[in-house]
Amino acid sequence: MKRITILTATFLCLFGLMESPAQNTQSSRNMEKLKLTQEWDKTFPKSDKVSHSKVTFVNRYGITLAADLYVPKTTAGGKLPAIAVSGPFGAVKEQSSGLYAQTLAERGFLTIAFDPSFTGESGGQPRYIASPDINTEDFSAAVDYLATRPDVDAERIGIVGICGWGGFAINAAANDTRIKATVASTMYDISRCSANGYFDANDNADARYKMRQELNAQRTEDYRTGTYPRTVMNPKPADDAPQFMKDYYDYYKTERGYHPRSINSGLGWNKTSNLAFLNAPILAYADEIRSAVLLIHGEKAHSRYFSEDTFKKLKGDNKELMIIPGAVHTDLYDRTDVIPFDKLEEFFKKYLK
């Protein structure tokens, strides 16, 4: 038995699985040097009730993420409950996620709004790609950061995902038991939408095969040219375009929500970005989430079925679906008269206690 133990230890040491604490600490400090904007460049006004600063942290793929930290100026003392926020899919922390984070900080939570890997001010190459695995990991990396802050209670950490990041939030909650409460607001299941199209209209093997052919041909061309062409996001819609396309344009391409670093305000995603989502249904284990989940969606949102179908998968009496009367998908991006912040505060105070 002793000989087996020694051999096992030798094997682990040879393959780098017994890294010393000193080595581990050093490697965690090897963060990419990011160029962070210091001036206030958000799409919402700055609050005088919270302190704001820029922070960075590293995910387990070695990508350095940039975040805005919001801390309430008046607290009762002691360690605070904390919330990490991200989304919508293709947005940056200066848009909707920052608004959610700042507002929740006004209500007593320490919060961060972060840019996902490969986007915004965060690191990662090539740029403007998404990943079902890495973007789920981004949430857990945010939890790593929050759990090790001296002013945060590591047993009281929650997350908020908006739009496509609502799906990643649900996926993260299924995998990360440190997350005690999850809110998915106006959520998309990006893997389902990528593989099946809107309303599952293209849910068949032939349609997916054709998509894979096109995306893989693009991969060959990308490698040949050494470039990564991008899609065009939210062009000005025609008069007869679906209303939700007009709503996206109204948020991302006008003064209301435009931001120069936002993928959805600019040239869009790397053309092959969707490829990974065709084989990776991110909500496969949603039914195994034991922590609290709140799904919020607009009554008139084209995407409402994502939350309704996800809610059917969830189990336990700590799960809730809230439908906002009359609201469309983008109303929950920035309309403070529509976003139910009182409900979010109540939910997080109940489950992060």
Rank of each mutant, 00 (worst) to 15 (best):
Q218F: 12
T10H: 05
I263C: 08
N279M: 03
S185Y: 06
K35T: 12
S273C: 08
N216M: 15
F199C: 15
S20N: 13
T64S: 06
P260E: 03
M18R: 15
K343M: 05
V71Q: 03
S122I: 03
V143K: 00
S53L: 00
Q95R: 04
S185P: 09
R192K: 05
R290I: 14
D287I: 08
K33W: 11
S96L: 09
D151Q: 14
K73G: 05
R149Q: 07
S194F: 05
N264A: 14
K46L: 08
E137L: 05
V55P: 04
A195S: 06
R192Y: 07
K350R: 02
I4P: 09
Y249H: 11
V328T: 13
K2E: 15
L14W: 15
S265V: 06
E308K: 02
D250M: 11
N24T: 15
Y145C: 05
L80R: 07
I282P: 06
E221A: 14
S307I: 09
L65D: 09
T74N: 00
V92H: 07
A292M: 09
M18G: 11
M1Q: 13
T310Q: 07
N202S: 08
S96R: 06
A276E: 10
I159E: 00
L314W: 05
P229G: 01
G108R: 00
S97I: 08
Y258G: 04
N175I: 11
Y209P: 13
R178C: 02
V92C: 06
K42H: 12
T5M: 11
F168W: 13
P281W: 11
M1I: 14
P72Q: 01
N264M: 04
I6H: 12
